[in-house]
Write a protein that binds this DNA or RNA. Structure first.
Lengths: 139, 139
DNA sequence: AGAAATTTGTCCGTATGTATC
DNA sequence: AGATACATACGGACAAATTTC
């Protein structure tokens, strides 16, 4: 009863079933999907499993979920990214802009070390962090 | 390709990466950490492993987890009243330069949120951190 | 305007089965 | 055999946004 996952996992089976309903037009674009609790009852799966199924559809941009409202079939088409993750780190030397120069009490154009960290989440860049410091030896 | 763990266990690697983001200011004090599921996706690790990583940060008092809310970076304990230390934090909106625009896949000039943290050590500025993110509104 | 109900978001703890080092 | 890690699944609880009464 607890957790056999022979062949296909349950959340995928559920996702596929909902996908069929969307692609067949049974649930048209813009329409509301059954609630998580309704799907839980229908498929006799836990809420977590149902949510996993919906997350799969969301990954495929097939549906859009709104907090406190529900999950809707995506109305229009979009162009999408891919996959991926991780962060990239690069280091370089840059000239101090007026603001940085003022902060560090140096002349505009003074060489600073800039470290840049790019964080990606699900394919797209979420955060860029730039850290500036004086070159070692300057002070 | 499932489970090699050379040298360091996976959860420790993940914890270290998150720690870096916190210490670099990418995730400032008081801010919400990505959810367990977001971290699961980003690091391609299982939920158990991600939770183990967060637990490690919690042990170090670096983050605080609240049931049903999320995990937050531990806020700094106040700044004394007087001279010096501590950092200045400012937030503003800036136009994306060509490099940032490319990273975020937006047009040059698109509005970004910039957070700047200035750290002072013994009176003078030691580090300036600038964090760039898209306006809360899309992607 | 306010309270209650709905619905999604997130976290907690636990469990089973598989695979690798 | 044991530690680590993955994927899956369950049930419960609290939080927050939205809708309904």
């Amino acid at each position: 009863m607890p957790t056999p996952h022979y062949g296909q996992p349950r959340y995928r089976t559920i996702a596929d079933e909902i996908r069929k309903r969307i692609e067949s037009g049974a649930i048209p674009p813009g329409a509301l999907l059954p609630t998580e609790s309704a799907l839980t009852a229908e498929f006799r799966a836990s809420r977590g499993t149902v949510r996993q199924a919906i997350a799969a559809l969301r990954d495929d941009r097939l549906v859009i979920t709104e907090h406190g409202r529900g999950t809707f079939v995506t109305p229009l088409r979009y162009e999408g990214g891919s996959a991926g993750s991780a962060g990239t780190e690069t280091q370089r030397q840059v000239a101090a802009d007026p603001e940085l120069a003022a902060l560090f009490s140096v002349k505009v154009g003074t060489t600073l070390v800039e470290q840049q960290r790019v964080t990606r989440a699900s394919g797209s860049v979420s955060t860029v962090v730039r850290t500036y410091q004086l070159l070692r030896g300057q002070q």
